[in-house]
Amino acid sequence: MSVFLQQTVNGLSLGSAYAVFAVGFTLLFGVLNVLNLAQGAVFMVGAFTGLELVRLVELPLPLAFLVAMVTAGAVSVLTQVAVFGPLERRGGHRWMGLIASLAVARLLVAIAQEVFGTQVLRYPSEPWMEASWTIAGVQIQGLQLIVLATALLVMAALAVLLRATQTGRAIRTMAFNPNVARLVGVPVQRMTLLTYFIAGALAGAAGVQLGVLYNAVSPFMGETILLKGLTVLILGGLGHVPGAALAGLLLGLTEVYSVGYLSSSFRDAVGFGLVFIILLVRPHGLFGLTTRQRA
């Protein structure tokens, strides 16, 4: 039983980081109908920013976390301004946008490699990082709690933003229908930039979380998370924010359980198999949103 509980704890902390990443990812999709594959690279930028702030500038982790989020958000906005915005204005269609996002991701990874080298980097050793408690035969690491807590905080903040503020209402209107949004006076350009910022910040947050949890930051860490993010997106339904959060947790748990009770070699196959089966049964994801038709 304690093995099951242990695996559950592992799965929840992993899943909460997935959830944070996926929520940003799905927001971009839901609001702007954009499948931005550069999000994985933005995640990596956040991870490096957090790491270097702690390593070189010796900032305390909470502060580094916030700065990393802001930096990742800024990079995301930059990609919108430099690439995706102009592409859309010049008549590029969605698939071209996808290619562009792949190239942007590649560029960011290449730059990170130039600057930081290919080596995996690690956070300097601090006593609080090794802290853990054993309850009922289950080992809970301090790091896991930190990831869970920050994930909850971040998502609560997002929920407040989306549900309770004017800005949030504007964003949700855009998600509903961009032309309607324009008609009712939503500053679409500004909201677009803001959405990119939020998505980037969330990706960056997940980057710091996973970087700290596994104490490993490398230029290639974005590739794996992107694939997981896509899986979560499908499970939760494209554009469905609470769905993404739940699906993130679900994926974390599924991965851990499939390693624990099936075979570690097929971990990813289980995730993909799940996606496949769910899509066959519910072609619009678990929470059933249709692909948007833009008028």
Partner: peptide, 28 residues
């Protein structure tokens, strides 16, 4: 037969899942 009726991005991800599953089978 089962997958083509899925639309748009969902279809893309279903086919991605297929490719990855084939790869993992080949790996194992």
């Amino acid at each position: 037969a089962p997958v083509l009726r899925i639309e748009g991005d969902y279809f893309a991800l279903a086919t991605l899942a297929f490719t990855e599953i084939v790869r993992i089978i080949a790996l194992n």
